[in-house]
Design a binder for these strands. Structure first.
Lengths: 161, 161
DNA sequence: CTACAAATTCAAGTCGACTTGAGGTCAATA
DNA sequence: TATTGACCTCAAGTCGACTTGAATTTGTAG
């Protein structure tokens, strides 16, 4: 009773079978073998899928997740690379805390427009005071609340070549 | 000197002009008028764009951001709706903290495979103990680490019809 | 032994958030 | 006044992460 077919894994995790196949294709998980055509998964896959779900919540791409927690269990990323990711997460967490506070404020503030509320304005300013190297859910940020964002005269191409 | 053209806004914020136009099209910001063909923006747009950037970091879609902080300054979302978003964020923050801890652990743990490390295993279990209603960066989650995820017999269609 | 539900592959489609490109318009210089 | 360069519009393209559909292949239940 150790091995599960894909529908069992799907049931246990709530992840669609098509997505599970997709993760296997991309090398994030591996099946232990086949019974006929059908994939068989070991119990470890449940933890790996939990990790994938977690990573996605953090806005990481499947590639990044694979680099951090590959199915082999050995990260493809260097130790400093991993610490970098962790530091990015710390910054993202702070951003999220700021955002949460602003949303709560908007919910409760009696001002007709939150933009007119001095407290809200202040929250925006605070949120801008982050260090460099911000990382967002999906693609990296060139600048966070424009701390002298205009590195040079960039006239449309704000992306790396 | 109050009004800026799009390239000025782009320089100040680091956001591509094409993206700024896109936000205007989607109704997240508004320009104060035109000089000939060219859009003119007031200074407020800088705060609004900072808010958009912030929202995206939180994994919100442009639609959601618009509902929370529309350019009119009045949220389209009800007070409970907003508190819901804030609570979602709180949960997301906890998830991110767990993820950060795991990444740091992977970086420092001497075990050949993190999956074999009992401490790591433990971190995964902990991360699974969240409440319902998780929201991820991009599309909602049906279940987080499968706390009896199989609501019924769902045999592939894990998405709303 | 046959039927059938459940899996499989592979190609194509979808969705959000932009970007890119072609062709057009203007306000400010030279 | 004639250029020019920044901006404009609109259509189409891109990218990641899947989903969907059509055409097969099984293992198992009847």
């Amino acid at each position: 009773m150790k091995f599960m077919d894909i529908s069992e894994v799907s049931k246990q995790t709530g992840i669609a079978a098509s997505a599970i196949r997709h993760y296997e294709e991309k090398g994030l998980i591996t099946s232990v073998g086949r019974r006929g055509l059908k994939r068989l998964f070991g119990p470890d896959v449940l933890d790996q899928l939990a990790l994938i779900t977690l990573g996605k919540t953090g806005g990481f791409s499947l590639e990044e997740i694979k680099a951090m927690f590959g199915p082999d269990g050995r990260p493809a990323l260097s130790r400093p690379g991993l610490h970098q990711k962790a530091d990015d997460l710390d910054r993202q967490i702070q951003t999220l805390e700021a955002l949460r506070d602003m949303i709560r404020h908007v919910a409760d503030c009696p001002a007709p427009s939150h933009m007119e509320c001095p407290k809200f304005q202040q929250l925006i300013r605070i949120s801008g005071r982050r260090k460099r190297g911000e990382r967002s859910a999906r693609h990296a940020k060139p600048s966070d609340r424009f701390p002298l964002a205009a590195d040079h005269h960039r006239l449309e191409k704000n992306k790396m070549s």
